[in-house]
Design a protein around this nucleic acid. Structure first.
Lengths: 207, 207
DNA sequence: GTCTATAGAGTGATAGAC
DNA sequence: GTCTATCACTCTATAGAC
């Protein structure tokens, strides 16, 4: 029961369009990572995608729309990774999941560079990604806070552990390590440092 | 034994030049903080300084030179603050000095924004401030590592404390807290979070 | 869906008068 | 030391042909 040829042909045209779009997102991710959002021109993304500037702007009517496509794709991938196959990790397992994400990022300096540069650029309220970066952080905080509270209910984490403080400091350590690692990739091990930090957390708050 | 009038007059002209220069550095600091280095035009700095673009470029032959002037001024001020009046603080006193710097920064969101945005932009090797940011971090690491080692020699800090790890994580916490504070100024207290963190360090490594 | 061509604004930097 | 005027370039976005 195969699809009639003429529909296949039409589908093939659509797929070509989808492929240009997907390739553009991948290229934009790489270039925004290398030179930041403001530092990357639409023309550069188009050239590396193999399109003219206008060809690219057919898919993304403005540079800001292209940026949101890049960010949504990254959040989608990281969300999948953090959620795990057996539902969201709770208690200390959430810190293990973060450690796994840090280890994974240690092999992707471009993506880390993109995030560090963009998160900093987008602290400016007028930046096109400002809403995204605010939601990104508060979402991460909510996710980790829920995991910690769940660990407290299970008796795995001390009931008097300061949830908000642990959440904010943990996220701060990840961000700060990324910054130092980008500058000193051979001297800083994000994985080792983050695991040393979570070890300290466990030593103090595990029950 | 006063200086002859004609030298005073000449001096007065020089002072006027110095004032334009100093004002330009202050304005550039503020604008780079608000919109990043790449996001700030020389024309904007000139306008807010009260000079034409060329008038500004008389003092700083290029935008990159203006940037280094801004960064050197900030490092000079922070270095003075951290060094203290009685020489560089050693042992746990170094963490107190950092906490004081964090508290001071909590009243200067523009300066924090400048640093966060610029440090991120400048992780790119081709950025005009790349050399500065690398030296800034390794200098800070050296300073704090020396203080910790001194504390170990004095028996104030455990001899088996992992110096490098403590240093990198402490700097990471400061950087990461700045990022979150810029996005959520009313929900995050950099001072409280940093002091909670150093409290954890002391609980584990104080002797 | 992709192209060429171009509008229209903004960029960093320079030349030369005062 | 500061100005006006201008150069050569890059940027995002649009119009319209194919």
């Amino acid at each position: 029961m195969s699809v009639p040829p003429r529909y296949r042909a039409k589908s093939r045209v659509d797929v070509s369009g989808e492929e240009s779009r997907a390739k553009a997102v991948a290229v934009a991710t790489e270039l925004f990572a290398l030179t930041g959002f403001k530092g990357t021109s639409v023309a550069a993304v188009a050239a590396k995608t193999g399109l003219s500037q206008s060809g690219l702007l057919h898919h993304f009517p403005s540079k800001a729309v292209l940026l949101t496509a890049v960010l949504e794709e990254r959040d989608r991938q990281d969300g999948e990774f953090l959620a795990g196959s057996a539902g969201p990790p709770l208690g200390w397992a959430a810190f293990d999941a973060l450690a796994a994400l840090v280890a994974r990022n240690s092999a992707r300096p471009h993506l880390v560079g993109l995030f560090v540069r963009l998160a900093a650029e987008a602290t400016e309220p007028a930046h096109p990604a400002h809403a995204w970066v605010r939601e990104h952080y508060s979402g991460l905080q909510r996710w980790l806070a829920a995991a910690v509270r769940s660990g407290q209910e299970d008796g795995e984490i001390a009931a008097d552990a300061p949830v908000g403080s642990i959440v904010r400091t943990t996220i701060a350590v990840i961000d700060g390590l990324q910054q130092q690692w980008l500058l000193q990739p051979d001297e800083v091990s994000m994985t080792a440092e983050f695991e040393a930090f979570t070890g300290t957390l466990r030593a103090r708050w595990a029950r």
